[in-house]
Design a protein around this nucleic acid. Structure first.
Length: 472
RNA sequence: GGGCCCGUAGAAGAGUCUGGUUGUCUUCGUCUCCCUGUCACGGAGAAGAUCGUGGGUUCAAAUCCCAUCGGGCCCGCCA
């Protein structure tokens, strides 16, 4: 049996007989000559069926329809002069078909697969996502996503980073977004939480002596969805020991400029502009300015927003950390903070304190955020106090990491990207869902699969759960 | 939790505001026939609709009202 050749490789086989396999992209019958375009993952190839072929072959060629799965054998030839098609990469060649084998028939697709798909209801596209992903635009998005993650992975490994996975079944943290919870079967009535970020684990890895860590973690937040927000998304998470802000900027600028050039074929200038939070708010009325407006161009505009305030004031008048309590203050502000008497403190003074916190902004979208962490227990204790946490509360929420910090913690810091949102921004997609193979709708219903859904009573029983009667 | 918008043959849209023959039309797709160089081929013909669902108003509802389901965008929320 002849080995199958990928369509992208076909131009290397001019004058040879090969076999290609894939989906029918389109059929054009002219009576005595039939053109069948066959598509595989790598491209599209025109095959030509002449009436001089065996009747049986011609009959089969007349029978097939779009999206049927077939394999076709024949000789690869250069196309006659006028028949060349510059619009497709295999437009210089065609296959003089000799045989066709139908591997699988197909129903007529519920929507067109040619074209970009933007005008089709997303509801339908998600219901049949496996067909939607056949379209070139979606396939390209998924493939470039992999090229980007693969590039970043290699880049970081080259720089001495270790990729380490952290748990998905983990502990609920009362800070931040609403958790997704998973009931424990063994410990009835208790729950795991899915991670909102590997923040604490990656800091523990610094204590463990992994000086440069990264991973592409899947993280979960049970908050209402938007065009740029999903329940679950992929991060690029990075943490390093013995570094300062400039080390993070340098790493990310090198990584992003190389990524843009090698994967997205776009040159960008480094270093990126650094804009203080106060300047950004003053000049652009936002902490994520779109610098394309300044430059009056559509080029990708990266910038750092730096020197965020450490604390913000909430509606109830209490103070909260803008980023998180483990964020380090600027060196000068640490001294000021140390002198502040919390028994009788001036909120304004605290609100002026600046942190070693930074965001990477691309075209007005926050695509990365991070900070240098503080590991000094006195400062941490005081920060928790400002935020109104009782010592018992702190112990319950952060005890494990504070305990770890007692065993020799290196100065450390890091950054995390919303990987899907980064792709969305670079690819200029309107929705984050265009960069994900199987996203949910904005009400959290999954693509193709019918989730969430009710479960067996037995499953609930095993977990020690029951629904209230009126909810069943 | 709140606001705005959308749901009409397989797909996209017009029709709804201002109710009126049997749901009319456009593009694409589907099916049949014709066609030897097309490439989203072309030509001729045909089929295809519970106007999301339920209720109400009316002599009469795709059209007006209420409810409900589904979808999208935004505010809140997302350290």
């Amino acid at each position: 049996m002849m080995k199958r050749t990928k369509i992208k490789e076909a131009p290397k086989h001019i004058g040879e007989k090969i076999k290609v396999a894939g989906w029918i992209n389109s059929c054009r019958s002219h009576g005595k000559i039939i053109f069948i375009d066959i598509r595989d993952e790598s491209g599209v190839l025109q095959t030509v069926f002449l009436s001089s072929l065996k009747t049986e072959v011609v009959e089969k060629a007349k029978l097939v329809r779009d999206e049927w799965v077939v394999e076709i054998e024949g000789e690869i030839n250069k196309r006659p002069g006028a028949a060349k098609n510059k619009d497709i990469s295999t437009g210089e060649i065609e296959m003089a078909a000799e045989s066709i084998n139908i591997l699988s028939e197909a129903k007529t697709p519920p929507f067109p697969i040619n074209g970009d798909g933007y005008d089709i209801k997303e509801e339908k596209r998600l219901e049949y996502r496996y067909l939607d992903l056949r379209r070139k635009r979606m396939k390209d998005n998924i493939i470039i996503r992999q090229q980007a993650s693969s590039f970043i992975r290699n880049y970081l490994i080259e720089k001495g980073f270790i990729e380490i996975e952290t748990p998905i079944l983990t502990k609920s943290t009362p800070e931040g977004a609403r958790d997704f919870l998973v009931p424990s079967r063994i410990h009835k009535g208790e729950f795991y939480a899915l991670p909102q970020s590997p923040q604490q684990y990656k800091q523990l890895l610094m204590v463990a002596g992994f000086e440069k860590y990264f991973q592409f973690p899947h993280v979960f937040r049970d908050e209402d969805l938007r065009a740029d927000r999903l329940f679950e998304h992929t991060q690029l998470d990075i943490e390093m020991s013995f570094i300062e802000e400039e080390d993070v900027f340098e790493l990310i600028e090198g990584m992003m400029s190389n990524l843009m050039e090698k994967v997205f074929n776009r040159k960008i200038k480094i270093p990126f502009p650094r804009i203080s939070y106060d300047e950004a708010i003053g000049k652009y009325k936002t902490d994520k300015p779109d610098l394309r407006k300044d430059k009056n161009s559509d080029e990708l505009a990266f910038s750092w927003t730096v020197d965020f305030p450490m604390f913000e004031i909430l509606q109830d008048g209490s103070l909260d950390a803008v980023h998180h309590p483990f964020t380090s203050l600027k060196d000068d502000d640490i001294k000021i903070f140390e002198k502040i008497d919390l028994k009788n403190f001036d909120k304004e003074k605290l609100l002026k304190l600046k942190a070693k916190q930074y965001d990477l902004v691309l075209n007005g979208v926050e695509i990365m955020g991070g900070s240098i962490r503080t590991h000094k227990s006195e400062i941490l204790k005081k920060t928790f106090e400002v935020m109104g946490h009782s010592p018992e509360g702190v112990e319950k929420r952060f005890g494990h990491i504070l305990e770890a910090f007692k065993f020799g913690v290196p100065p450390h810091g890091g950054i995390a990207a919303g990987f899907d949102r980064l792709l969305q921004t670079v690819l200029k997609e309107k929705s984050i869902r265009e960069t994900v193979a199987f996203p949910t709708t904005t009400s959290g219903n999954t693509a193709v699969m019918d989730a969430p859904s009710f479960v067996d009573e037995n499953q609930l029983k095993e977990l020690g759960l029951k629904l209230r009667k009126e909810e069943q």
